[in-house]
């Protein structure tokens, strides 16, 4: 049984179909990528999984349905969403942002451990924990966003374009952190623009275009796929 099972998922905005009959699975501890051009429906797919927007089709996590759950129950089940555009609480400190990630948890000792884990993942945040988050650089903000999602101690982490708009030097740091998170046992579903990096770190990849899945398979295989090479890797 996969950890996450999305089957024939469709999402409409008014009359427009943003996601059409998409099926995605993520196994325990797996790192799965979603590629696709702007407007393909990638963000919409992630929002549907965390129940921020309504959808039709099957949505199962650890064999239990997520359909009809409010977003906070999805978090309680173990899915944390690091949204597109980081979406930090701008006027709060780095530390407060991170603590809010653990909103539903009550075990202070475990929360403290996770905070240390985030700081070891992104040491710069430890120095900046009292700084107002809106004054951080884009890359640092992205670290807070990922760290904040990890503070929920998720079994599945949803990442929406974590490397977009980030300096190349920091980009490597972000992808390293993502690999580390996976190594520690958290499954990840990552939406990315950077196809090269995604194909390098992911186990499997889905390619979405116009709301539909046009390719899916093991990252190794897709990296050799002629269409993918031309359109996404530009070689």
């Amino acid at each position: 049984m996969p950890l996450l099972e999305v089957k024939d998922l469709s999402v409409r905005y008014g009359k427009a179909l943003a996601v059409e009959q998409v099926s995605v699975t993520v196994d325990k501890g797996e790192l799965v990528g979603v590629l696709g051009p702007n407007g393909a429906g990638k963000t919409t797919l992630l929002k549907a999984i965390s129940r921020a927007i309504g959808s039709t089709g099957t949505l199962k996590f650890k064999g239990q349905t997520l359909e009809r759950l409010p977003p906070y129950d999805v978090v309680a089940r173990g899915i944390c969403h690091c949204p597109e555009g980081r979406r930090l609480f701008p006027e709060l400190s780095v530390l407060k942002n991170l603590q809010l990630g653990a909103y539903l948890r009550s075990n202070k000792a475990e929360i403290g451990e996770d905070l240390e884990r985030v700081f070891s993942l992104f040491p710069v945040l430890k120095e900046r924990q009292q700084q107002q988050s809106s004054t951080l650089s884009g890359g640092e903000q992205q670290m807070v966003a990922i760290g904040r999602a990890m503070m929920g101690r998720p079994e599945l982490l949803l990442l929406d374009e974590p490397s977009v708009g980030i300096a190349p030097r920091l980009k490597g740091l972000i992808f390293d952190a993502i690999e580390k998170i996976r190594k520690d046992g958290t499954a990840i579903l990552i939406v990315e623009q950077d196809a090269t990096a995604t194909l390098r770190i992911a186990d499997r990849v889905y390619v979405l275009e116009h709301g539909r899945t046009v390719r899916e398979g093991r990252a190794k295989d897709l990296a050799g796929d002629e269409y993918i090479r031309q359109v996404y890797l530009g070689v």
């Binding site: 906070y72 979406r87 701008p90 709060l92 407060k96 809010l100 909103y103 929920g152």
Partner: peptide, 23 residues
């Protein structure tokens, strides 16, 4: 307080607050 932090979070970004598990 934790509830106070949630109030601030919702006022600054209600959608992101949802992703934290804040009702």
């Amino acid at each position: 307080t934790r509830l106070g932090a949630a109030i601030l979070a919702v006022s600054q970004d209600p959608e992101a607050a949802q992703y934290m598990g804040i009702p």
